[in-house]
Design a protein around this nucleic acid. Structure first.
Lengths: 127, 127
DNA sequence: CATCCTTTACGAAAAGTTTCGTAGTTCCCC
DNA sequence: GGGGAACTACGAAACTTTTCGTAAAGGATG
């Protein structure tokens, strides 16, 4: 069962690794983590254990090296965090957030096309 | 001088109040805060003092009741938080974030138009 | 089977955030 | 000018998050 509480920044880093690389051992997660920042093995282990208690991850204990995987959906968390940001920093104005995001980024042609399609679709439904 | 560090959730709540209502006394901030959640007066005071030390807010001590105002720009914080979210939860794909935001919201006709204009402008610059 | 390596478990320190009690100051008003 | 109300300052408690040291268990190997 997915959790409805916002993961911390560190937890999110780990979730990102699990979403991207699928089920992984502590060792694997730690190595990925260390590509970005120095992190002790037991630190990573402890994080995963805590996340396990919070039901943020599941684990398979069949092997000696437990295998962890994300217990929550990436889309759900994206929505959760986006909604929160929208509310706390953008006073609920999604359009404003979108304008900011587009302004500060450099979307590819394909991405632009996708966004336009979505806009057209929204307008069509509106009629 | 603006800060480059992410404000905490509580700090953001207070900043929001200051951005919206302009320079305010502790009392005023506390009252606004209490519309949302019970918060002791000294708690709010302490938060503002801490934020002052972090240079998140400025204060005018001329009057007996100090008057606080945001020392950082709303746009800057929006950008900071958005960039962070983009990186940590959306793997850097702004288009993906935008699609999520548009999908979960209900933008007005005017907002849709503004977004489209920005898209067109981006495409024009691209050429 | 003694030793080494990998791994888990656990407690606790370190760091950061939030809340609040208490004390002291200033100002007002009777 | 004494007492109370409105404030500020400050320290410390309560929590949460992050990091890591140490112990112990499991497995592999000479």
């Amino acid at each position: 069962m997915a959790k409805k509480q916002k993961p911390t920044d560190s937890e999110l880093e780990i979730l990102q690794i699990l979403w991207e690389g699928g089920a992984s051992t502590v060792k694997a997660v730690n190595e990925k983590l260390n590509e970005k920042k120095e992190t002790g093995y037991t630190t990573t282990l402890k994080m995963l254990q805590i996340m396990f208690e919070k039901n943020l991850v599941e684990r398979n204990e069949n092997e000696r090296s437990h295998v962890y995987k994300a217990a929550i959906n990436k889309d759900d968390i994206q929505k959760l965090l986006l909604d929160k940001l929208l509310e706390t920093a953008f006073s609920g104005s999604a359009a404003n957030l979108v304008l900011h995001a587009l302004g500060n980024s450099n979307p590819s042609k394909e991405e632009l096309t996708k966004i336009k399609e979505l806009l057209n679709q929204i307008e069509k439904e509106r009629k």
